[in-house]
Amino acid sequence: MFLRLLFVLLVALNIAVGAWLMLGQDDAHGRSVTDPGVPMLHLLSEQSAAPVAGRPPVASTAPAQAASAAVALETRCLAIGPFGTPQDLRTARGALAGPGVRMRSRQEQATETGAWWVYLPAPGTRAQALALARRLDAAHVGDYFVMSSGDQSNAISLGLFKDPANARKRRDEVAAAGFAAQIQERTEQVPEYWLDLVVADGARLDWRGRVRTAGVGSHSTSCF
């Protein structure tokens, strides 16, 4: 009786083990826990840990833009000048050198008035110019010169003056003697020297307290 009961128990145990091996191990036999064509579900924690396929992460440009704006607010750019000589420029550069200051020197050409010329326009021919000169002598108008070359050939020069007031006085004297004297402004090209500065706002540079050259000013300029 006991042996028969033991045999039945062993047969039942074998049947149970076989059923578990056949039905309880899906992965071992290549079966999926989902139906064909249905995507696998993932936890939210699993999805946040990995980037979306085919879409690279986008870096924010806000920090870079903020940094650029901060740099623009931290500096100011000035042009100081004009200096009349290179030595004046070098002296100013040495006086302004220091932490937080970047400098560059440059030279430009400027047009300035050199003198005022009083003259009688050329009458036409050389003979007419000489006849006009004899009339000046007769009217006791001296200190003149008949031009013989250049773009003012045959004009009669009555003087070259640095002071415009003196030029007007000479013109009026000759006009009172009966001659239509004129004044022409003479210009020339002269070099000017400038010092460009890029200054950090925190430096608080008082350039006027360091540069003693007369006639020098400043204006805003583009940074470099």
Rank of each mutant, 00 (worst) to 15 (best):
A110L: 09
T113K: 08
D88L: 10
D88A: 14
A115T: 13
A79M: 04
A95I: 02
M103A: 14
R90I: 10
Q87M: 10
L89Q: 08
G81W: 07
T85F: 03
P86A: 10
A115L: 10
R106N: 06
E108F: 02
R106C: 00
A97P: 03
T85E: 06
P99I: 06
G98C: 10
G84Y: 09
R104K: 14
D88R: 11
F83E: 04
P86C: 03
G81V: 00
I80K: 04
G114I: 03
S105G: 08
M103Q: 14
A110T: 11
F83C: 03
T85M: 10
T113C: 01
R104F: 07
V101R: 14
A110K: 02
A115F: 04
Q107D: 06
Q107H: 00
F83Y: 10
R104T: 05
T91M: 15
T113H: 03
A115G: 12
P82F: 06
F83P: 05
Q87L: 11
R90K: 11
A92D: 11
G84F: 13
A79D: 00
A110W: 07
S105N: 12
M103C: 05
F83D: 02
T85V: 07
Q107R: 12
A97H: 10
R93K: 08
V101L: 06
V101C: 06
A115K: 13
A95T: 03
P99S: 14
P86K: 08
R93C: 01
P82K: 05
T113D: 00
P99D: 12
G81E: 00
V101S: 09
R106F: 06
T85A: 08
A79W: 02
Q109Y: 02
A79T: 05
M103D: 07
T111D: 03
P82T: 08
A110Y: 06
P99H: 07
V101I: 15
E108D: 13
R102E: 08
T111A: 09
T113N: 04
T91D: 15
T113S: 05
R104P: 01
G84W: 14
T85H: 09
P99Y: 08
A79C: 00
E112W: 10
E108C: 00
A92G: 12
P99C: 05
T113L: 05
M103E: 07
A110V: 14
T113P: 02
R90P: 02
F83S: 04
E108H: 04
F83T: 00
E112N: 08
G98L: 12
G81I: 01
P86E: 07
P82I: 04
G84L: 11
R106M: 01
I80G: 00
R106I: 00
G100T: 09
Q109L: 07
E112K: 15
E108L: 11
S105L: 05
M103T: 01
L96G: 02
L96D: 04
R90C: 01
G98I: 08
E108I: 09
A79I: 02
V101D: 05
